[in-house]
Nucleic acid binder design. Structure first.
Lengths: 160, 160
DNA sequence: CATTTCTTGACAGTATACTGATAATCAGCA
DNA sequence: TGCTGATTATCAGTATACTGTCAAGAAATG
């Protein structure tokens, strides 16, 4: 019988666990309280001011039902504002606040450090190859998840 | 600013999402209702009859508080039994049932298929390299997670 | 304009994962 | 033996992720 540790899915889960733990540790040490998911959302909104939640979900490959809670918490922390869209009354426009911008900039070194720590076992060349293989595997499987990545074409309101 | 898609942590999350979705799809198509986490636990118990929950957690790198719920659900499905240990009244001995054994065997082809599907974008050589890099990165980061892998020394009651 | 269809956002329910706390028990030691 | 510290399992609380469902609104169509 095949050992669990020969299963790519199992290894993926373990690596993700480590990645999240490292992220938390580095970010907390820097004095911030943001999860990896919240950081990715905040960062994506900062680069695409005014997008709605579905577009955000596509940008970072989150499920649309997950976005609601993530945005809730970011709004509660004062890092985002969520306003009804004027063009489409179903949609909510997401904008990063001044405080959110400061948090994003302040947290960046910790996030960069986390990426290094979680791959500290690999050489520089191995890191490159690892990322390449991850991207390739993800590209081939993108549509198999309920939350596929969806790049915006060419109309996103570019921020700052 | 660095794009989210250049972050290994973000890529890890995405690959894990795909891996879980593929697992669910393949297993459901085969007529079973087991999550990846439940499968790994069931499989580990099948190979180590009578282990307690902490040992199980170490074997598959789960948090000890997560194990409780996973075992609960497997017991509820009739695939496991959880009995007080005679040697240590704090501990619960986990044993796979006949039905659990049948489920484990019946589900194996679907699990194998899932591993192939989630890596369908990679060549055979790339799959090998990907797994090697995953294992290497995980080994270096193992202790950074609250749920590190802990192999049992040499006394586990080998099953079947 | 009226109707059908799609889309956006939200909710209930389930299943990981984690933090931190606690009860019960065991093991080592004065 | 009695005390102290470690260990096993559990629980409360929080945060992803997903299934499935629903209401409100937009878009397409007759």
């Amino acid at each position: 019988m095949r050992d669990n540790n020969d299963m790519p899915g199992h290894l993926a889960r373990r690596f993700q666990q480590i990645a999240v733990a490292v992220f938390h540790a580095e970010v907390e040490a820097a004095g911030y309280d943001l999860t990896p998911v919240q950081y990715a959302a905040l960062s994506a909104i900062g680069m695409n001011q005014g997008i709605d939640q579905i577009t955000l979900a596509g940008l970072i490959a989150y499920d649309r039902t997950t976005i609601t809670g993530v945005v809730d918490r970011l709004v509660q922390k004062g890092l985002l504002v969520r306003n009804p869209s004027s063009r489409d009354r179903r949609a909510r426009e997401l904008r990063i606040t001044e405080e959110g911008m400061r948090a994003l900039q302040g947290i960046t070194p910790a996030v960069e450090a986390a990426q290094r720590v979680m791959l500290r076992g690999l050489t520089k060349e191995e890191v490159e190859e690892f990322m390449r293989l991850l991207r390739k595997a993800i590209a081939a499987g993108n549509e198999l998840s309920r939350a596929p990545l969806k790049q915006i074409s060419a109309e996103g309101t570019k921020g700052s």
